Simulated assay, not measured.
Amino acid sequence: MDELLGGHLRTLREAAATGRLPDRTELDDCRATGARAAERGVSVRALVEAALLMAESMSTAPPLPALRRTVSALMEGYENAQRSALRQEEDARREFVNDLLQGRADRLAERAEHFGLRLAETYMVAVARPAGPKADGPAPDRAAGDQVGDHVGDRAGDRAGDRAGDRAAGDGGMPARRIEEAMITRFGSHNVLIAVREGMLVCVVPGSLAVATGEFTHHVRQMFAPGWRVGLGRSHRGPGGVVTSYREGANAIELGDRLGLRAPVLKAADLLVFPVLLRDRAAIEDLVTTVLSSLLEARGGPGPLLDTLEAVFASQGNQAAAARKLGVSTRAVTYRLERIRRLTGFSPDDPTQRFTLETAVLGARLLDWPAHPLG
């Protein structure tokens, strides 16, 4: 400690001999000393105590204003070094999560150990989107996670994209930081990785800690304005599994938008049928055209009839409940279903035909038909 505070002692001796206050250069030297103490792991209390003991041991006591300024400079340098170290750690953490979600393998396992992750285990990802549509989001047929804003493959761009995402996540990223702090306080930094990506807040947790995604959703509900959505990916093993789970969570949100689903929390496991449908676009287009195209002939267009089918299916065939959802009478629902049967030849009362109709209606929503005519 004597070697570390040698410059501080010389400054105090000079002040005691001349009565002058430390100049800028001497105070800068004290700040540098404080920074070195922080880098060596010396506590700020031990640093200040050693500096005061040095002043007490001097044969001629230095002026109190001089001692106050040097000690203040020591503490300032110490705090600046700590803040810098925290920023570097945050940058490294953000860069690691970004590389993890993009599937970049550069020293991934080694870097994961630094953050307490064991990548051979299973992980699941929760993705939270603030209220409103995502700006510059991926196109419907592109896998989520293929881009970071408009910055692809550029680490400086990645960080810029993250900062833009912080703003999209609300109030300069403050909700994101608060959620991260709350999650780490409860589950530990080795169990939680949180980052902002493409304007969405991403939370990576072990597959064995599914309760953490519920806690994450709770904090999102508390911090984000109404209109937020959370997509939950399934548990998968290894670094590639993290990427897969992230894409599942992001795609669950996108599917919820395209299907007009009202639930704020969407589980990829509950939506597995939709990627299957989209995998064979030609087949789903043929189904929609064959089953529903005759609804284009209906007076007032197909919209009210499609809405009626969706409401009936969501109500498990209960026409009274469907009528309440639609804000019409039960008689109106019955009348519309009869029109659908006459126009399409399919009845939601028949189990086989009901499945065909429901699949066709889901396909229509996925393809945004009839707003976008099918080729």
Rank of each mutant, 00 (worst) to 15 (best):
residue 84 S to Q: 11
residue 297 E to W: 06
residue 233 G to C: 04
residue 192 V to M: 13
residue 51 A to L: 06
residue 264 P to K: 01
residue 42 V to G: 10
residue 260 G to V: 03
residue 189 S to Y: 12
residue 230 V to I: 13
residue 195 A to C: 13
residue 279 R to A: 11
residue 79 E to H: 04
residue 30 C to G: 02
residue 184 I to C: 01
residue 227 G to P: 02
residue 234 R to M: 07
residue 140 P to N: 04
residue 202 V to L: 06
residue 141 D to G: 10
residue 375 G to S: 09
residue 131 A to K: 03
residue 167 R to H: 10
residue 72 S to L: 05
residue 152 V to M: 11
residue 54 M to P: 00
residue 290 T to H: 11
residue 8 H to R: 00
residue 89 E to Y: 08
residue 212 A to C: 08
residue 227 G to E: 03
residue 299 R to V: 07
residue 185 T to Y: 10
residue 284 I to L: 15
residue 149 G to V: 11
residue 15 A to T: 12
residue 94 R to K: 06
residue 189 S to C: 08
residue 232 L to Q: 03
residue 59 S to P: 00
residue 180 E to K: 13
residue 219 H to M: 11
residue 2 D to V: 15
residue 97 V to A: 15
residue 342 R to K: 01
residue 313 F to L: 10
residue 283 A to C: 04
residue 142 R to N: 02
residue 3 E to H: 10
residue 38 A to M: 03
residue 81 A to R: 14
residue 134 K to Q: 06
residue 272 L to Q: 10
residue 204 V to F: 02
residue 319 Q to R: 15
residue 307 D to K: 05
residue 40 R to Y: 01
residue 145 G to H: 03
residue 214 G to A: 04
residue 40 R to S: 12
residue 241 G to I: 04
residue 321 A to W: 05
residue 31 R to A: 01
residue 279 R to D: 15
residue 9 L to P: 02
residue 44 V to G: 09
residue 149 G to D: 00
residue 90 E to K: 15
residue 21 L to Y: 00
residue 207 G to P: 01
residue 163 R to M: 00
residue 270 D to S: 12
residue 110 E to P: 08
residue 213 T to R: 08
residue 333 V to H: 04
residue 206 P to C: 02
residue 375 G to R: 13
residue 343 L to F: 06
residue 263 A to F: 02
residue 132 G to Q: 12
residue 301 G to V: 09
residue 288 V to Q: 07
residue 365 R to F: 09
residue 276 V to S: 05
residue 284 I to N: 08
residue 153 G to C: 09
residue 202 V to I: 14
residue 217 T to S: 15
residue 230 V to K: 13
residue 25 T to D: 07
residue 268 A to K: 08
residue 42 V to A: 03
residue 267 K to M: 07
residue 269 A to L: 03
residue 328 V to E: 05
residue 240 G to K: 01
residue 275 P to G: 03
residue 202 V to S: 10
residue 82 Q to D: 04
residue 87 R to V: 02
residue 360 A to H: 11
residue 159 R to Y: 02
residue 224 F to L: 09
residue 301 G to W: 15
residue 329 S to V: 04
residue 254 E to H: 15
residue 105 A to W: 04
residue 68 R to E: 04
residue 301 G to E: 13
residue 356 T to D: 04
residue 107 R to A: 15
residue 116 G to L: 02
residue 342 R to P: 01
residue 332 A to M: 09
residue 53 L to M: 05
residue 213 T to H: 09
residue 227 G to S: 06
residue 368 D to N: 07
residue 222 Q to S: 15
residue 269 A to E: 15
residue 283 A to R: 11
residue 300 G to K: 03
residue 65 P to C: 09
residue 162 D to S: 15
residue 84 S to T: 08
residue 216 F to A: 11
residue 233 G to Y: 01
residue 275 P to H: 00
residue 234 R to Y: 08
residue 239 P to S: 01
residue 96 F to Y: 12
residue 266 L to H: 10
residue 92 A to N: 07
residue 197 R to F: 04
residue 192 V to T: 07
residue 288 V to C: 06
residue 258 R to A: 08
residue 171 D to Y: 06
residue 306 L to W: 14
residue 278 L to T: 09
residue 156 A to N: 11
residue 38 A to E: 14
